[in-house]
Design a binder for these strands. Structure first.
Length: 258
RNA sequence: AUUACUCUAGA
């Protein structure tokens, strides 16, 4: 059984979703019947190949075969939708998951307690929303985590920031970055990079540079991506001189720009 | 043995 699971995982890494499904079929035919590990590996394998429909089908298949989807099944399926560019399908799974977990349940029932969303679930749905430019929804999910008492990780903040950055929502980015710090996390370059990008897209090149200066004083080290984002912000606002200064700094870090 | 986790620009 473990060998099958490993093989299915390997198919996923090579984007061989058809192979992964063949393995699951072989198990249905000749045994051993797949357990949740195998189904989950297959859901993830299809997701990595952009086959979100297959991932959803597997979710139904496992239910029909008496293997109730667990937390990882849902998380993988939502991620699959996100990778396939279908935040709306991911949202459906999320909603179904929450509904199922709110059904009355007691230990005498034959199925295990349906899982509630965890930080990974939120990470998957927020990433899906961000990729689909659904920044408002990403922000709502971030709030929802707070309400439900799910720990907000660096990853979920970064995913939310990335979503807002994509559409130039710099105010929202700044607020979110602030929340991140308030919740005890130290934003690193990846987080600031999104904020700078958002400023650039919003035509706020001066703010972009202000944040670039701010991040160092807050203990985040700018990387190539940071400088590229800041340079692009200047370029988009036609501040060629400032862009050039950043470029020069990248080539020679001793030439400190003003 | 199975799941999210980023990020700039371009292609």
């Amino acid at each position: 059984l473990k060998c099958y699971c490993s093989a299915i995982t390997a198919c996923g890494k090579g984007s061989k979703w058809k192979q992964a499904l063949r393995l699951v079929d072989a198990m249905h035919r000749d045994g051993p019947p797949p357990n949740e590990y195998c189904y989950n590996a297959a859901i993830s394998a299809c997701g990595k190949s952009g086959q979100w429909v297959r991932s959803k089908e597997l979710l139904s298949t496992m239910r029909e075969r008496g293997v109730p989807p667990d937390l990882i099944s849902f998380n993988s399926a939502i991620d699959a939708c996100g990778k396939g560019g279908r935040w709306d399908e991911g949202l459906k799974i999320f909603v179904d998951m929450v509904k199922a977990s709110e059904e009355p349940w007691d230990p005498s029932m034959d199925h295990p307690k349906p899982p509630t969303p965890d930080a990974t679930t939120y990470g998957a749905i927020i990433t899906a929303c961000s990729r689909g430019k659904q920044w408002q929804m990403a922000l709502r999910f971030l709030e929802d985590m707070e309400r439900k008492g799910v720990e907000r990780t660096e990853g979920v903040f970064q995913a939310t920031l990335a979503g807002c950055a994509r559409v130039g929502k710099w105010r929202e980015c700044i607020v979110t970055l602030d929340q991140m710090r308030k919740s005890g996390l130290q934003p690193r370059a990846a987080a600031y990079n999104s904020v700078i990008t958002a400023c650039g897209r919003g035509g706020e090149w001066q703010r972009a540079i202000a944040i670039l200066q701010q991040m160092s004083s807050r203990g985040a080290t700018p990387d190539v991506i940071t400088l590229n984002a800041a340079m692009t912000a200047c370029t988009q606002s036609r501040r060629w001189k400032q862009a050039k200064a950043i470029l020069d700094f990248m080539r020679d870090p001793t030439s400190v720009p003003t």
